[in-house]
Simulated assay, not measured.
Amino acid sequence: MVKVVHISEAASLAVHSMALIAGSKEMLNVNQIADLTHASRNHLAKVMQTLVKNNYLESVRGPKGGFTLKGDAAGITLLEIYELIEGTLEHKYCGIGDQKCPFRTCVFGGLADRFSREFTNYLRNTTLSQLI
């Protein structure tokens, strides 16, 4: 099945994991998060490594280890997390660029661009603290 809006598994795991960690009173480890998100442990571990490397999470090794949030959940937007994994969001999604399109108005009614702006605004205006 084709999706109109596609959010990569890595970006989804990053946002879900950060929200789970932000809302937990105890450290969560990769196995626990993988169980909660029904994700591949290996894929999740790579995502978590990126979040640690970019100072969003602190990692504690060992049997009682896990992840804790670095910083305040109210100061971390979903857009920061999303773009860390995916890169900067584009706001033009037509398969034919503006310079090449033979039509004066968008044949898709500008919906893809509008969806993109709304999605970006939601991510920009939503913090981890709002999810917990």
Results as ranks from 00 to 15, higher is better:
residue 93 Y to W: 15
residue 21 I to V: 13
residue 17 S to F: 10
residue 76 I to A: 07
residue 115 F to M: 14
residue 118 E to G: 10
residue 15 V to E: 04
residue 103 F to Q: 12
residue 30 V to I: 14
residue 13 L to Q: 05
residue 110 G to R: 03
residue 9 E to Q: 15
residue 52 V to F: 06
residue 114 R to M: 14
residue 77 T to R: 08
residue 127 T to E: 06
residue 38 H to I: 02
residue 58 E to A: 15
residue 67 F to N: 01
residue 76 I to R: 05
residue 57 L to S: 08
residue 131 L to V: 04
residue 111 L to W: 04
residue 93 Y to I: 06
residue 117 R to M: 02
residue 59 S to C: 13
residue 51 L to W: 08
residue 14 A to D: 09
residue 98 D to T: 13
residue 43 H to M: 13
residue 24 S to W: 04
residue 83 E to V: 01
residue 131 L to K: 08
residue 57 L to A: 05
residue 89 L to E: 00
residue 127 T to D: 11
residue 12 S to K: 13
residue 127 T to V: 06
residue 2 V to H: 13
residue 38 H to P: 01
residue 87 G to A: 07
residue 119 F to N: 04
residue 83 E to H: 01
residue 118 E to L: 00
residue 93 Y to S: 07
residue 17 S to E: 02
residue 132 I to S: 12
residue 69 L to E: 04
residue 118 E to D: 00
residue 126 T to A: 05
residue 79 L to F: 03
residue 116 S to Y: 00
residue 31 N to E: 14
residue 122 Y to V: 05
residue 68 T to Y: 04
residue 92 K to P: 01
residue 41 R to I: 09
residue 80 E to P: 02
residue 75 G to V: 03
residue 72 D to V: 07
residue 6 H to K: 11
residue 78 L to D: 01
residue 117 R to Y: 00
residue 84 L to F: 09
residue 29 N to R: 07
residue 109 G to F: 11
residue 73 A to T: 11
residue 85 I to R: 08
residue 132 I to F: 10
residue 61 R to W: 10
residue 107 V to P: 10
residue 70 K to L: 14
residue 74 A to S: 15
residue 90 E to N: 15
residue 110 G to A: 05
residue 121 N to L: 13
residue 81 I to R: 04
residue 44 L to F: 06
residue 82 Y to R: 02
residue 118 E to R: 07
residue 105 T to W: 11
residue 81 I to L: 15
residue 57 L to G: 11
residue 43 H to W: 07
residue 89 L to T: 00
residue 13 L to R: 05
residue 14 A to T: 04
residue 85 I to M: 08
residue 87 G to V: 00
residue 11 A to T: 01
residue 1 M to E: 14
residue 85 I to Q: 05
residue 49 Q to F: 13
residue 18 M to R: 03
residue 1 M to G: 15
residue 57 L to Q: 09
residue 6 H to I: 07
residue 110 G to K: 03
residue 76 I to V: 13
residue 42 N to M: 10
residue 115 F to L: 15
residue 86 E to I: 05
residue 39 A to P: 11
residue 122 Y to W: 12
residue 108 F to L: 13
residue 81 I to S: 08
residue 62 G to H: 08
residue 104 R to P: 05
residue 87 G to S: 00
residue 122 Y to I: 08
residue 83 E to W: 07
residue 39 A to T: 09
residue 39 A to D: 11
residue 38 H to D: 12
residue 87 G to R: 08
residue 122 Y to R: 06
residue 67 F to E: 04
residue 132 I to N: 14
residue 101 C to Q: 07
residue 39 A to W: 12
residue 126 T to N: 09
residue 84 L to C: 13
residue 61 R to E: 15
residue 15 V to R: 01
residue 24 S to C: 03
residue 36 L to D: 15
residue 22 A to L: 02
residue 93 Y to P: 03
residue 127 T to W: 09
residue 84 L to I: 07
residue 10 A to M: 09
residue 116 S to I: 02
residue 79 L to W: 09
residue 89 L to W: 01
residue 87 G to C: 07
residue 8 S to F: 08
residue 49 Q to G: 12
residue 120 T to M: 06
residue 98 D to F: 12
residue 10 A to S: 12
residue 91 H to G: 00
residue 67 F to Q: 11
residue 114 R to P: 03
residue 35 D to P: 02
residue 90 E to I: 09
residue 37 T to C: 15
